[in-house]
């Protein structure tokens, strides 16, 4: 099965921190191409997020459908990173958009809509995960690794490593975990992460540094 592409640009409207990444060849999948489940007006597609938000406030529900189409993949991926399984990520994604819809009146437009949505997603994930350990999907090399092109033993090793990394990330303190997810998997600049988490840039950098050091320790422990 095809893995999710590079996550750098999965959130429209945000500049990735790195211009190029090792997996840059696997571009993001644009969600605009197919949305049979919810029809959106073709006339809206060229509008930016803020204009769509205004349209929703004026009663244009289909503008919100388009916002969902634009951002659903990124929201789902954030949720998956926090929860470690598809079911919870799916439920949380729905909850995030519902919260966003309810709270559109509080969106001032001073930050990007995507940043605002990230904040809702992170808060929802942290609320859900409080006092609850992430339930990783059952280890399934066929699902997590493209076994068609990789030898079975290599695929298994990668799958085990992935499970160890997920477990290590899950053990991080909340803000460190959020920082790692937003920085490493979504390539948000430190400044953007600071806005999402309501922290200072310095705090984000310090969190990130400690997070990586903790991950190094946790992965080392898992190896031994």
């Amino acid at each position: 099965m095809e893995e999710a592409g590079g996550l750098a640009a999965t959130w429209p409207g945000l500049e990735p921190a790195h211009a190029a990444r090792p997996e840059a060849g696997r571009g993001p999948v644009r969600d605009h191409e197919s949305h049979d489940g919810v029809e959106t007006s073709p006339g809206l597609e060229h509008l930016d997020d803020v204009t769509l938000v205004d349209a929703v406030r004026s009663g244009g529900r289909e503008a919100f459908d388009l916002l969902v189409v634009r951002h659903r993949r990124a929201v789902y991926q954030v949720c998956y990173r926090f929860t470690g399984n598809h079911e919870d990520a799916s439920d949380l994604s729905q909850e995030v958009f519902l919260r966003a819809y309810r709270g559109l009146t509080s969106f001032k437009g001073s930050a990007a809509f995507a940043t605002w949505l990230y904040r809702i997603a992170v808060n929802a994930c942290l609320s859900r995960s409080a006092g609850q350990k992430p339930q990783a999907d059952v280890l399934d090399p066929d699902r997590h690794v493209d076994t068609a092109h990789v030898a079975a033993d290599v695929a298994l090793a990668r799958s085990r490593m992935a499970a160890r990394v997920r477990a290590a990330v899950a053990q991080l303190p909340r803000k460190q975990r959020a920082t790692v997810i937003l920085r490493v998997y979504h390539d948000l600049p430190h400044e953007q992460i600071a806005k999402v988490l309501g922290s200072s840039v310095g705090a984000v950098k310090a969190n990130f540094f400690h997070a990586v050091r903790n991950l190094r320790r946790l992965l080392g422990e898992a190896e031994n």
Binding site: V68, Y76, Q77, L98, Y101, A162, V165
Partner: peptide, 25 residues
């Protein structure tokens, strides 16, 4: 850490998610 990717859900999932959100609203 970066090497760990999110498994791609079924292609039908995205439209299903949109429909669920639209319905819940």
């Amino acid at each position: 850490v970066r090497d760990v990717e999110v498994p791609e859900p079924s292609p039908l999932f995205w439209d299903h998610l949109s429909a669920r959100i639209s319905q819940s609203i």
